[in-house]
Deep mutational scan, measured.
Amino acid sequence: MQNSHSGVNQLGGVFVNGRPLPDSTRQKIVELAHSGARPCDISRILQVSNGCVSKILGRYYETGSIRPRAIGGSKPRVATPEVVSKIAQYKRECPSIFAWEIRDRLLSEGVCTNDNIPSVSSINRVLRNLASEKQQMGADGMYDKLRMLNGQTGSWGTRPGWYPGTSVPGQPTQDGCQQQEGGGENTNSISSNGEDSDEAQMRLQLKRKLQRNRTSFTQEQIEALEKEFERTHYPDVFARERLAAKIDLPEARIQVWFSNRRAKWRREEKLRNQRRQASNTPSHIPISSSFSTSVYQPIPQPTTPVSSFTSGSMLGRTDTALTNTYSALPPMPSFTMANNLPMQPPVPSQTSSYSCMLPTSPSVNGRSYDTYTPPHMQTHMNSQPMGTSGTTSTGLISPGVSVPVQVPGSEPDMSQYWPRLQ
């Protein structure tokens, strides 16, 4: 039975679970980093996980050691009161100082060594604690504590007292930064006198190289990059290397530039699409467009005044059976039934097929058609009795279509119309 579990990581490298990497692998990681390889490249070359490479390099940059820390136990506290007071002093002298600059000053002034120097995250935590204590304490208590930490007896009751030896409130920041720059020169002199001055200088240079600022491109470089971006948004590694040799930039910087440029292009394309949609959409909808001609068919113009009344309900007709019959029939052209047409008796099958359309009241044959006459024609229609054979009435077949029909004066039988409509 094995005491430890061995495995293979996602890159194909072998590791022992819970145990640190061998010293030979750690040394190779540092050597590759000094030669300029990126952590992701080191991870692929040595088949070590990216997190492990970053952790080893980060500890090497901070402490200069590649040895693993002790497994188990607690780390001794490195942010001692003396170190905290120095950090507060540096922050007062130059409020814009960075944590890694404070760390360098602690090393250069001999406050800490490589073994007990606090990390950048520890210094940031100390600065946050100082800021929170400043908010919790009152103004007087804060000034007393700062005077105690600074070891001075001057008056701290006013704002300019934060910067000793100065009279203009805006000047101390520059003086403090100048003092810090002077301390940086002392850093070089002190570290050069040490035993491991060369190694420390190499480590600091490598650290500065990794902690780079934003790349500033010249106009020629920007023009070359934009020209390549117009050709393709995704250049391959050969195109990037050719462009890197042409404009004297690292291939990694060119790759990052193209990634950022593609993101910018997507944002601009989104804005262009929004403007295009806004320009195509009308600002207001016309009133006429809300009524579609496919839904509402136009009603033909009436030929006679009587045809303006298109349904039985508008003429005072309360018989719903006839109203439904007229509205359900398709529109037909106007025609006239003459008196000489043969009077065919209704076929029983045809009569039964339209039995649902006729009223059940037996008085329908005896009703006159003056009910369908509009009010303004009552006088004219009353002067001509319906009993004469020459009287013409208008029957409504569908809305908007008038059918003048000659009705025999002897017997106005409704059943004569249905064979004609089939």
Rank of each mutant, 00 (worst) to 15 (best):
H5K: 14
H5P: 12
H5E: 08
S6E: 09
N9H: 03
N9C: 04
L11F: 09
G12L: 03
G12I: 01
G12R: 03
G12P: 01
G13Y: 03
G13D: 01
V16R: 14
V16F: 15
N17Q: 15
N17G: 05
N17L: 15
G18R: 04
P20D: 00
P20I: 02
P20C: 02
L21G: 05
P22V: 05
S24C: 12
Q27F: 10
K28L: 08
K28M: 11
V30G: 01
L32R: 02
A33N: 08
S35G: 11
S35W: 10
S35P: 01
S35T: 14
G36E: 04
A37Y: 15
R38S: 04
P39D: 05
C40D: 00
D41R: 06
D41M: 06
D41H: 08
I42R: 00
S43H: 01
S43L: 01
I45L: 11
I45A: 13
L46H: 05
V48G: 01
S49G: 00
N50F: 15
G51F: 00
K55M: 01
I56R: 00
L57A: 02
L57F: 01
R59I: 05
Y60Q: 00
Y61S: 07
E62L: 09
T63E: 08
G64C: 04
I66P: 05
I66K: 00
R67I: 05
P68N: 05
P68F: 06
P68K: 04
P68A: 11
R69T: 05
A70S: 10
A70D: 06
A70V: 08
I71C: 15
G72D: 01
G72C: 05
S74M: 02
K75Y: 05
P76Y: 03
P76S: 04
P76F: 03
P76Q: 01
P76G: 01
V78I: 06
V78G: 00
V78H: 04
V78K: 15
A79P: 01
A79F: 02
P81H: 07
P81Q: 08
P81M: 07
E82L: 14
E82Q: 11
V83S: 05
V84H: 04
V84P: 03
K86W: 08
Y90L: 13
K91C: 00
K91N: 05
K91Y: 03
S96L: 10
S96E: 13
A99Y: 04
A99R: 06
W100Y: 08
I102H: 06
I102W: 03
I102V: 04
I102M: 14
R103I: 04
D104A: 12
R105L: 13
R105A: 09
R105T: 10
R105N: 09
L106V: 04
L107K: 15
G110Y: 09
C112E: 00
N114Q: 12
N116F: 09
P118V: 04
S119D: 00
S121C: 00
S122N: 04
S122R: 01
I123S: 01
I123R: 03
R125L: 05
V126N: 06
L127V: 14
L130P: 06
A131D: 07
S132K: 15
E133W: 09
E133S: 12
K134L: 09
K134I: 07
Q135V: 09
M137L: 13
A139W: 13
D140F: 11
M142T: 10
M142G: 14
M142H: 15
Y143I: 11
L146N: 13
